[in-house]
Simulated scan of single mutants.
Amino acid sequence: MRLELIAASDNDLTFARDLTRRAMLPYYREFDLLWIEQAFDEAWGWREQWLVVEDGTLLGFCSLSQDRQALFIRELHLLPEHRGRGVGSWVLEELAGWAALRHLPLLRLMVFKSNPARQLYLRRGFTEMGEDECFVRMQRSTDCA
Rank of each mutant, 00 (worst) to 15 (best):
S9R: 11
L71W: 06
T57A: 00
F15P: 00
V52Q: 10
L109A: 09
L120I: 15
E48K: 03
L95N: 07
I73D: 00
Y28A: 11
V52G: 09
H103W: 04
L78V: 12
L19W: 01
I73N: 00
G45D: 05
W46V: 15
L59K: 05
L92V: 15
P116W: 05
E30A: 10
P26Y: 08
R83T: 15
A96Q: 05
E128K: 03
E42R: 13
L106P: 08
Y121R: 04
A8F: 13
R118K: 11
A7K: 12
L109Q: 07
F72S: 07
A39L: 13
L59W: 02
A16D: 02
P116H: 06
S89K: 04
P105R: 09
F15H: 01
S114V: 13
H82F: 12
W44L: 09
R123L: 03
R124A: 08
L64Y: 01
R29E: 14
D10L: 13
E54W: 02
L51R: 03
E75D: 01
E94N: 09
L79Y: 03
L101T: 15
Q119P: 08
E93L: 13
G88A: 11
A96Y: 02
Q66W: 09
F31W: 03
A23W: 01
P116F: 03
W44Y: 14
R102A: 12
Y28F: 15
S114E: 13
Y27H: 15
L19N: 01
H82P: 07
L104F: 06
Y28W: 02
Q38L: 08
L106Y: 12
S89D: 07
E94I: 08
G84Q: 06
R124N: 08
L64K: 01
L104E: 09
F72H: 04
L51F: 04
R102F: 07
